[in-house]
Amino acid sequence: MNEFYYFIRNILLPSLFEGTLVSIKLIILSIPLGLILGVLIAVGRVYGNKIISTLCTVYVIFFRGTPLLVQLFILYFGLPSIGIFFSPFASAVIGFVLCSGAYHSEYIRGAIQSIKTGQMMAAEALGMTRFKAILYVILPQALRRAIPGCSNEIIYLIKYSSLAFMVTCVELTGAGKIIASRYFAYTEVFLVIGIIYLLMVSVVTKLLNMLEKKLEIPGLG
């Protein structure tokens, strides 16, 4: 038993530390970028002209219809054959942003479409351009309504960040596999890793709930 604790404290946790940092970096970059992309795609689908709207729809169909892992493989193993080279970290971030952007856009699009048409009419009646109306009247309301769905997607991203290892970016899961195979301690290592992910997810869930509370407006949502 002591051996077990010794292993965890002096060998496992320090080695996982670097991996955890990489995971955090991946997540911190991908979440905001994915959200922004989601907003742009959703607005493009609802308010764009035929061409923009169709392009956005095709994008969503592709990135929601294929596994994230396939997308990562195309980015890291596929693109070099046509001359585009991304590092493992960059491929992972790009893949996460493109993929979560598609999912976010569906939640946001649903929220935009749930806003009464009268809101846009009133904004235009005041003389606002379409763009201003979307920015100052539609999005502030739609984004609040999309928070539950987008929060869900953010939590998914934290878990699926583990796939970065499959394109050789050594984050938490990757670090774990390396240690586990060296010491043949798969069960111990991955239980600890599991706990770390559970902690990350709990903390972020708490933060997102606080955010939702803060943005609450009586009568909205």
Partner: peptide
Amino acid sequence: VWFFRGLPVLVLLFLFYFGLFSL
């Protein structure tokens, strides 16, 4: 539910296939 939803699929696969099942 908390356990199986909270862990990434990849971690679950490694945990069970390389770890628990052999155990």
